Simulated assay, not measured.
Amino acid sequence: MKSWFMPCILAAWLFPASGDLCLNPPPVNFSILVVTVTEERFLATYYCIRGYHLIGKKELFCNKSSLEWDSPAPTCLLGHCPNPVLINGQLNSSKLEPVSEEEIVTFKCDTNYILKGSNWTQCQKDHTWTPPLPICIREQCKPPQRSNHVHFKASNFNPGSRVTFYCEDGYQLIGEQSLQCINGEWSGESPICEEVLEAIREAPVEAEESCVFRERNNICENVQRMMQCQKENRKTLEELKYSMEIKKLQLEKIKAVMSTE
């Protein structure tokens, strides 16, 4: 295995234009290129010169069978680290551009926004910021999204506040009834209201206690008793199941109403 250095700013290529070799590695300004040759492939590694940082893939491979590089060439941009950006906020550093190694930047959010993350960061030797760059999020939550037939009650949308949802008559709530504003975002998805079928809302509960299956020591006897009860009341298994579903919906509706009061 052998390797050599190639300063791309000089554009001095060492690959011969041959049909059985890979094409010259793509040139990258303000970088130093190290090429390693093995029996099976070429490896091109790019290093940005001091004062520049790499954007893209650092290493490119070229198999001798395909004779093509596996990725586009990276670029070297001015500054040891990428320029810090804070949307809806402000940053304070010793200078604007380029960013130098070990430079420290502090952050502050605009009015009505709060900082999520560290209020400072430092440019490291590996061209990264540590701690990671923060973001500015809204201090208040936006009004919650709601679908048709959904209403909500809330005194405000400040951090820690809660909003309670309820449905119009004839509709039932599907989802969380109450959400809390945390770090500018609601704690969950807004619920929806689905229409309760007229037949379910108005149909009387016909299932009788005597026809409900109860666990006993003698299961066969209990099954026979339930079947006899259904026969006397002229009920089928589907009818019994339907009446029990109606009772379940009515109990859920009562529970929802009681929890909102």
Rank of each mutant, 00 (worst) to 15 (best):
1 M>T: 12
3 S>E: 10
4 W>Y: 15
8 C>H: 03
9 I>H: 07
11 A>N: 15
11 A>C: 05
13 W>S: 14
16 P>K: 15
16 P>V: 14
16 P>I: 12
19 G>C: 09
20 D>I: 13
21 L>R: 14
24 N>D: 13
45 T>H: 08
47 Y>W: 08
49 I>M: 15
50 R>C: 00
53 H>G: 05
53 H>D: 05
59 E>S: 12
60 L>P: 03
62 C>D: 07
63 N>M: 09
64 K>C: 04
66 S>Y: 02
67 L>P: 03
67 L>Y: 04
68 E>Y: 01
69 W>I: 08
70 D>F: 05
71 S>Y: 10
76 C>W: 11
81 C>R: 08
82 P>K: 09
83 N>Y: 15
84 P>E: 08
85 V>T: 12
85 V>L: 14
86 L>F: 04
87 I>D: 13
90 Q>N: 15
91 L>T: 08
92 N>C: 10
93 S>E: 06
97 E>M: 09
104 I>S: 11
105 V>C: 03
105 V>Q: 05
105 V>Y: 01
107 F>A: 02
108 K>E: 13
109 C>G: 03
109 C>E: 04
109 C>P: 04
110 D>H: 11
112 N>D: 14
112 N>Q: 10
113 Y>L: 06
114 I>P: 00
114 I>L: 11
118 S>I: 01
122 Q>P: 00
122 Q>Y: 04
124 Q>A: 10
135 I>N: 10
135 I>S: 14
138 R>V: 03
143 P>R: 07
144 P>Y: 11
145 Q>G: 15
147 S>W: 05
150 V>K: 04
152 F>K: 04
153 K>T: 07
155 S>M: 09
156 N>G: 07
157 F>E: 02
158 N>L: 15
158 N>H: 13
159 P>H: 02
160 G>Q: 02
163 V>T: 07
165 F>P: 04
166 Y>D: 12
169 D>Q: 12
172 Q>T: 15
173 L>G: 03
174 I>L: 14
175 G>N: 08
175 G>A: 06
176 E>T: 03
176 E>R: 08
179 L>I: 02
182 I>C: 00
183 N>V: 00
183 N>D: 10
183 N>R: 03
184 G>M: 02
185 E>V: 07
186 W>G: 01
188 G>S: 06
190 S>I: 01
190 S>A: 13
192 I>M: 11
192 I>K: 10
201 R>P: 00
201 R>K: 14
202 E>M: 09
203 A>N: 10
209 E>R: 06
213 F>R: 01
217 N>Y: 09
222 N>R: 10
222 N>I: 00
224 Q>F: 00
228 Q>I: 00
228 Q>E: 10
230 Q>F: 04
231 K>D: 03
232 E>D: 12
233 N>S: 11
240 L>N: 01
242 Y>R: 04
243 S>W: 10
245 E>R: 14
249 L>Y: 11
250 Q>P: 01
250 Q>T: 08
251 L>I: 14
252 E>K: 15
261 E>V: 08
